[in-house]
Design a protein around this nucleic acid. Structure first.
Lengths: 339, 339
DNA sequence: ATGAAAGCGCTAACAT
DNA sequence: ATGTTAGCGCTTTCAT
């Protein structure tokens, strides 16, 4: 059976479509007589009416839809973010589009355009490379945009991020308490704000603890991957000049790569080297050894981003706000006192 | 600046909107003179025109959008499925809505209705409980629907699933080759097709190997969770009547729960008991011990589901097809020869 | 308090 | 080959 339209509802209630429309919309409901309101509501319920949002979008130029851009849903940090955002958006009456971009500028541009063609009211982006300018461009064009998990050097683009700095400080303090003094950082790529923040905080933290005498305390990974963690730590282990007893890894995958590199050299974690990861990716409590890591509240990151966006849409005068969410050190067994 | 409309393009090209529309649509392009075609295309490019899909949807009653229903994106089996589907859909010009339902009938119904209100052309559902009737109801209402990862007892609802039966057979053969004879199955919930298929295949497989003399070879988990795996295996270990040297777990999480239960009793895997999981969830290669498991091609499940749906939409006469994708035994270190 | 009418941007049937 | 016209379903201004 054909889906009921407003016209059907109006006919059944014996009123004009305009009246039916008014009755069915919260904001105009007060304009209609309570008896007719009842009739319309009843008719709508009888017919299982639920409106045509394409028509409404066309007429009102508001879609109650938002587009979510992310590099790759398959990367375990994203699902909780998307879930958090979708939960809030659904609660508030919005629907959610998703697109995986692989951080490819072409796919990103095409996805943005597709979302725009569908009249999205705003965007949540989880994949803004620091210097590709996409975010800035979107902001310049006046599109509502909230960045999540990554920020951009511009105060007028709202973002929701985790407190990476504090996470690094927690990691360093933990190591220092355990007696470690020779600590290295396997930094993630520097084209993402998380990468630069964590690295910067590490260098600063080393200085704060008076541990910065040697320069080679940071090694650079070219990707946030296990493979890179393995490659870079292997290099460090071959290099006689650098010795260390503890590693702050850019993220859990890099830390996992460190596990591999240590194992290959016959070293064990945490006996020979302690490691702290970042993110508390699922199952890190079950890897061997269970990984000490900085937990990022991904689900809340998604929720807060969605809240920020909706608030922005509903009150554009509010001005952009950015939120930094607290992180937490989860101590497991990849860290141990210095022998 | 205001987004360009077809009218703007037509004006700039000096033609009527209908001509512009024809020029811009593949199917009607041949109707327009090649010189005017050029002018329209040029004008569209100049203006960065990309159409208003709400208007088109309203007019054509086709949205080129599909809705994806899943219980919980945070469950690691779903992201690759969604990613696979989205990849195909984007390739074919469709956009993707997502909704997490938590398998809650209310949320599911509301999400379906929201998708319908937005005029989706079809649905991909990854969360069809076997007996809740939602899928059947949708099919009855004539909505295009493809089930993924789970099937329903109805031939006319297309589905894409993994070959669970073969997976169980692979697991059993592996155990038998290793010398195991006392094998139990920790079955997943029976309201999902995967749960019943795996259990049925296990019972059948035991018979095929002549290993079915004892009845208590199957224990039932109430959820696909680590916690349930732990609870149920603990029960089995306390039960003096049942002894076993090998476990086919309903999925990897249940298997992880088995790890926990064994550890609590001072038993080790695979020394005392061998375990095979199901799914090859991310990081199962890094748990301790690395888990032998049946790999399900989740990404391809998503891709095939999307293909099936699009084919269905583009040629409804094709009739429903269902696809079963091959699985693979991944041997790691949670299985060992019988001592 | 309700109805009439216009129009959002687009496509398709019809006319030329 | 192109223009004219109508209308998808809805909201909103204006009139009553």
């Amino acid at each position: 059976m054909r889906r009921a339209t407003l016209k059907d509802v109006a006919a059944r209630a014996g009123v004009h479509v305009a009246t039916a429309s008014r009755a069915l919309n919260e904001t105009s409901r007060h304009l209609v007589n309570s008896a007719t309101l009842d009739r319309v509501l009843r008719a709508a319920a009888d017919l299982g009416y639920s409106g045509n949002l394409s028509a409404r979008t066309l007429r009102t130029a508001r879609s109650m839809a938002i587009g979510m851009l992310l590099p790759d849903l398959t990367n375990p940090i994203f699902p909780p973010i998307v879930r958090g955002a979708e939960d809030i958006l659904r609660e508030r009456g919005y629907s959610t589009w998703i697109a995986n971009t692989d951080d490819d500028p072409k796919i990103t541009a095409a996805s943005i355009d597709a979302f725009l063609a569908r009249g999205v009211d705003g965007f949540i982006s989880a994949g803004s490379r620091l210097h590709d300018g996409t975010a800035e461009q979107m902001a310049a064009q006046g599109h509502a945009l909230v960045l999540v998990n990554r920020a951009v050097d511009r105060a007028d683009i709202p973002s929701v991020t985790a407190d990476d700095d504090h996470g690094v400080r927690l990691a360093l303090s933990h190591f220092v308490e355990l007696g470690h003094r020779k600590i290295v950082h396997l930094a993630g790529p520097q084209d993402l704000s998380t990468g630069v923040h964590r690295k910067r905080a590490f260098v600063q933290g080393l200085a704060d603890h008076g541990l910065d005498r040697e320069p080679e305390r940071v090694a650079q990974c070219e990707a946030w991957s296990q493979r890179e963690g393995h490659r870079v730590l292997s290099g460090l282990l071959r290099d006689e000049k650098i010795d260390f007893t503890a590693i702050v890894a850019g993220n859990d995958l890099i830390a996992l790569g460190c596990y591999d590199a240590l194992r290959e050299r016959g070293l064990t974690c945490p006996h020979d080297v302690s490691i702290i990861g970042f993110n508390d990716t699922p199952f890190m409590d079950h890897v061997a050894p269970p990984m000490t890591t900085i937990r990022i509240p991904q689900y809340d990151l998604g929720r807060e981003a969605a809240k920020l966006l909706v608030d922005l849409l509903e009150d554009p005068t509010g001005g952009p706000r950015s939120i930094v969410l607290p992180v937490e050190l989860v101590i497991r067994r990849s860290t141990a006192p210095l022998r």
